[in-house]
Design a binder for these strands. Structure first.
Length: 459
RNA sequence: GGCUGGGUGGCAGAGUGGUUAUGCAGCGGUCUGCAACAUCGUUUACGCCGGUUCGAUUCCGACCCCAGCCUCCA
């Protein structure tokens, strides 16, 4: 039975079959980070979601071109005349140049992706490598009458589009009425900057010449320009975090609609947030959890990946150390079970079909994972369980086959105690045996008695 | 305040107009000298108030609360 891959499209607000626009090719564009700081685990949840999407599309038999951009231009903290450029602020904070900062945090970001077993995208692209493309895009918009100039930059005239804001179902009148900031020289609340002028006294590290004067591109234009370069004017899937729906993606669509006449992507997919117990996961406040923080607390990076697998990408996921620990316990049990099964034999058709069914139903990984657990607890032969679970892991990406029990050096002291305990047990001196076990546990090791003798593990 | 989306058992989280996933924790059994490991079983939840219906956690309305956006943020 051939199963079809169905995904939820934010633009139409419906689940429908993914059919390639061209041949067997799927173009997938994912909004990447602004590299002025480390990414946090909330950001990483979104990249895990996109990786699952990437793997699932490949699984369905399509060729994926996965593009991730790096926003290495700082932009401003707001479109109004206030705010500071993030890269410039980062530069002052660290003593590095804006260019060095971009490079430093880009490489830190890529390290995190590798640790989470996220497949390398087909194409990485940087905003600063595509200034010409962005300028050309704005020139085109200008020739079509969609821009106007103010004293601080070139702006997009959003009222020229009838259905501006459709993606987010924006209520334009309501937005205007409830606007919280004053417009500056902008003509309308939803207008946004395409090009910003450098201020004469500013001394920016990142600026370029343009037909309108020296300055730097607005944020939204880079994605329209770069996605067009690598995937064309209308491609299959565009994704990012749900916070991008009302502004960033809305504006990308507006630009592309004005210039190319398309809605940019056939499917718009959005990852939901990782929710913190008490505070918001916020990069700008500086108060956030990195993957590194989890590792320092003794968690394997893939525990975080497993943690994310438990929730559907379109619902909020609450993070707490308690639930991360639960994920750790689950994953370790899965690893140990799979390891104990030995060599794989054949895949169980029955379980595999159910797995794919859930996967193709808008990436229902929680259900797919439930099938995995049913398999683990089923009476199927070990070889079949192993083969089937490894097939699931092509999507899960938990690296189940590579896992090995931790090899630990057992101190001499402990191994001699262990021998003494075995002696005591042989002579059924249970008091002595239990006493030695207590002593060993004080030294940081636990004992599990098995048919083949005691197994010792660090606590 | 406006718009968009959401509120499920101790925790995390699927799903459904009537049969109510899965994981973790807890409890009980098996195993064990005792434990641990493992394993089996188990706790009957859907914010609040109305309405539709033979029947609603699932549909509709009001209210409360949470999140996203309206200021850079996945």
């Amino acid at each position: 039975m051939k199963q079809v891959l169905k995904l939820f499209d934010t633009y139409e607000r419906e689940v429908r079959e993914l059919k390639p626009l061209k041949g067997n090719e799927i173009g997938l564009y994912a909004c990447g980070p602004t590299v002025y700081n480390f990414v946090h685990i909330g950001n990483l949840r979104t990249y895990i979601f996109e990786d699952l999407l990437h793997r699932t599309i490949s699984h369905a038999g399509f060729n994926v071109t996965h593009v991730i951009n790096i926003t290495d231009v700082g932009h401003l903290a707001s479109d109004a005349d206030s705010g500071e450029d993030k890269m410039e602020v980062g530069s002052r904070r660290t003593g590095m140049t804006a260019w060095e900062i971009a490079e430093f945090y880009t490489s830190a970001f890529k390290d995190d992706l590798v640790k989470l077993n996220i497949l390398e995208p087909t194409i990485w692209c940087k905003a600063t490598d595509h200034i010409e493309d962005q300028i050309a895009f704005i020139v085109d918009l200008e020739s079509k009458g969609f821009v106007y100039e103010t004293s601080d930059g070139i702006y997009f005239d959003s009222r020229k589009l009838d259905d501006y804001g459709y993606l987010a179902r924006l209520d334009i009148d309501g937005l205007q009425a409830g606007a919280r900031v004053n417009l500056g020289e902008k003509r309308f609340v939803t207008d946004f900057a395409l090009w910003k002028f450098s201020k004469p006294d500013e001394n920016r590290q990142m600026e370029w010449d343009s037909p309108w004067g020296i300055g730097f591109p607005g944020w939204h234009i880079e994605c329209s320009a770069m996605s067009a370069r690598y995937l064309g004017d209308y491609f299959d899937i565009h994704c990012g975090g749900k916070d991008h729906i009302p502004i960033h993606h809305t504006n990308e669509i507006a630009q592309t609609q004005a210039s190319k006449g398309t809605r940019l992507a056939n499917f718009w997919l959005h990852g939901y947030f990782l929710q913190m117990e008490d505070s918001k996961m916020s990069k700008s406040s500086g108060d956030f959890l990195r993957l590194e923080t989890l590792i320092e607390r003794g968690y394997l990076p893939l525990v975080f990946r497993y943690f994310c697998l438990q929730a559907h990408y379109r619902s909020e996921l609450s993070f707490s150390w308690e639930s991360l620990k639960a994920a750790h316990t689950s994953l370790m049990r899965l690893y140990e079970a799979a390891y104990s099964w030995g060599a794989p034999s054949n895949i169980s058709e029955e379980y595999y079909v159910r797995f794919v069914q859930h996967l193709y139903n808008d990436l229902n990984l929680p259900r797919a994972l439930a099938v995995a657990w049913e398999l683990v607890r089923s009476p199927e032969p070990d070889g079949i369980k192993k083969a089937t679970l490894l097939a699931f892991d092509e999507i899960f990406g938990l690296d189940i086959n590579a896992w090995r029990p931790k090899q630990v050096d057992i101190p001499k002291e402990v191994s001699s105690l262990l021998a003494r305990r075995e002696e005591a047990r042989k002579s059924k001196d249970w008091n002595a045996a239990d006493q030695v076990r207590d002593e060993i546990s004080r030294l940081g090791f636990s004992i599990e008695d098995s048919k083949d003798g005691p197994i010792i593990k660090p606590i």
